[in-house]
């Protein structure tokens, strides 16, 4: 199977119907960017795909098993340094071999790497979370607004790092910026109309 197929996904929180029969086909081995206004269910969709939440109904097929993610929040172990945070998710020591090189590639210095994560700036923490997601060697990587808190120069550095390290991998990224979609070279899955336009609700969401 070469794609993830999402059929009729429903998810509500009380009276708030976040996903109403969402359909989409996401290609494997490519970068897909999900865009749409706040509250349209982008993160909910990502959480369902990650297995963190259950859909009320609907079907998802073709989803790879080994997953990694950059969450909306960094979700790092704050008392430990960057290397220890990456060691935490390594199944074996193989992914530790070039950890230092990966962290340097996203612009972190040796000093940044040796400090407990709680002492790092928001942007530095974000980069540790991104490297952690890459080094998990997963089949699919979920990125929820991964460049939040990064300045333009660092964002470009991290985008290039991600493009290099995720070649032929399935990446699903939630973003608010069309510029980021273009820079990372991903296909666009626009969620803008599907929840408000009744015709679009049951229509398969096309990737542009």
């Amino acid at each position: 199977m070469k794609e993830i197929i999402i059929n009729g996904l429903y998810k509500s929180y009380g009276e708030n119907h976040v996903l109403r029969g969402f359909n989409a086909t996401i290609p494997l081995g490519k970068i897909t960017c999900i865009m749409g206004p706040s509250g349209y269910g982008k993160t909910t969709l990502l959480n369902i795909l990650m297995g963190l939440e259950k859909a009320d109904s609907g079907q998802i097929t073709g989803l790879p098993n080994i997953k990694s993610a950059v969450f909306q929040e960094d979700r790092l172990c704050e008392d430990f340094n960057a290397i220890a945070n990456i060691r935490f998710i390594c199944k074996n020591n193989a992914c530790l071999e070039d950890t230092q090189a990966h962290l340097t590639a996203v612009g972190l210095t040796d000093e940044d790497i040796s400090r407990p994560v709680r002492e790092l700036s928001g942007g530095m923490k974000r980069r540790v979370a991104i490297v952690r997601a890459v080094l998990a060697r997963a089949d699919i990587i979920f990125l929820d607004e991964p460049f939040k808190g990064l300045d333009t120069e660092t964002k470009l550095l991290v985008i290039n790092y991600l493009k290099k390290e995720t070649t032929d991998k399935t990446v699903i990224m939630v973003t608010h910026s069309l510029e980021e979609v273009k820079a990372i070279g991903g296909s666009l899955l626009d969620m803008t109309n599907y929840n408000t336009d009744e015709k679009a609700i049951n229509k398969r969401n096309e990737i542009k």
């Binding site: 963190l52 979700r75 704050e78 935490f88 998710i89």
Partner: peptide, 24 residues
């Protein structure tokens, strides 16, 4: 709870959860 969710997604082992999440 969010750290535990992260640990589950990355399939972190129980001893690692103990050392990195619970003990701190």
């Amino acid at each position: 709870f969010k750290l535990l969710q992260m640990a589950d997604l990355f399939k972190a082992s129980w001893p690692r959860k103990l050392i990195y999440i619970f003990l701190p």
